[in-house]
Design a protein around this nucleic acid. Structure first.
Lengths: 194, 194
DNA sequence: CAAACCAGACCGACCGGTCTGTCTTCATGT
DNA sequence: ACATGAAGACAGACCGGTCGGTCTGGTTTG
């Protein structure tokens, strides 16, 4: 790993526990064993680092959550697989996210203090929400969901359920509780099938 | 309002948008028009202020969310009423919580940085979760819920749903989206009746 | 030898907290 | 009724420490 990659990796870890504002550049430099000179040679500011870290975080998110989805045809089962990936592969990744989902930590902190940074996270959330809703609508159209199902309402339940489960996991750090919650969401989705 | 009350009120507002660490005492003093001397005459430290603010926040929480519950007998309908209170009376209270639910903002920030402060919030969360679960169990015992309902799993869905809805409301500040989400949860609960 | 890489002293701004001093309040003694 | 003094309430200068960022200079690399 190059120094630049090391800085991004370590920053991602610290962002997930302390957020953006409370993570000091000095802390990062000590953790990776370099100095201000080494840092500002690769990043022009703390905010520039933020965007690099977000790129890496998004990359990890896709890698973990979308694993195996392309081999599933049923759009509803795709969402089911995503829910499973979410708690089995993604949220438990304490190597990259020791403090839980970094997007939650950063969003809650930045939404009212650094809106232009929060917007960068929100784009991903809007895309994710749309991803769920499109698949549910496709599922309904192809008869994989009951005709009385409201895809938008189900999307709200699943999306906020995932948000809440992430917050709860940051707090409790309990794999059991996380598994129960997500399995409850999966059962909920399962019961919407014809 | 005394100066002490003014400080607590203003701090609650700022905590809900900026959290504990990013809210500076100087900012609070400017907002209420006093000085360091006026502050440290009433509070011995920033952390002491935190606990006073939490007491006030909990008081507001109970006032808003438990309104009218004592006039309802059916334990399931009590939870239904609580969900309605939550989004109609509590979360929209931008006078006290301009940045959304203060407990969420503080918990996400403090859980890994000030665990002893986060514990104070977590007590309330544990109590709230237990409150929901006890009422669902009572509802099941008295035949107000289907016999195949798992109260613990439903509690997880409702609790994390509320957490997620709070986070989402902080981000979107959309009353419509909040209403849809909570109504989805209410529908979900309604469908568990016999 | 030029360019990239990195170490570390340094800067102004801001943080929570302390301390001194001023002004008001009010119980007390006469 | 009035003087008095202790205590509470508040203003604001000040302190050590930390923040993000700059700058100089030495070292490595192509």
């Amino acid at each position: 790993m190059t120094l630049k990659e090391k800085i991004i990796h370590e920053t991602l870890r610290q962002f997930s526990t302390k957020g953006f504002l409370s993570t000091s550049i000095t802390d990062i430099l000590e953790a990776v064993g370099t100095s201000k000179g080494g840092f500002y040679n690769h990043f022009e500011s703390k905010e520039a680092l933020f965007f690099h870290v977000m790129d890496k975080a998004r990359s990890i998110w896709r890698d973990r959550n979308l694993a195996g989805l392309d081999q599933i045809e049923d759009p509803v089962d795709k969402i089911k697989q995503l829910l499973n990936n979410f708690y089995k592969r993604y949220l438990k990744d304490s190597e990259n996210f020791p403090g839980g989902c970094v997007f939650i930590t950063l969003m809650v902190e930045l939404i009212d203090q650094r809106p232009h940074l929060a917007n960068d996270i929100n784009k991903g959330w809007v895309g994710f929400k749309g991803f769920i809703q499109r698949h549910l609508e496709a599922g309904k159209a192809t008869g994989k969901l009951r005709s009385d199902v409201n895809p938008e309402a189900v999307t709200e339940i699943l999306f906020t359920g995932i948000l809440g489960a992430s917050v709860n996991y940051s707090v409790e750090k309990s794999d059991d509780s996380l598994e129960k919650t997500v399995n409850s969401l999966i059962d909920y989705l399962e019961n919407l099938k014809p």
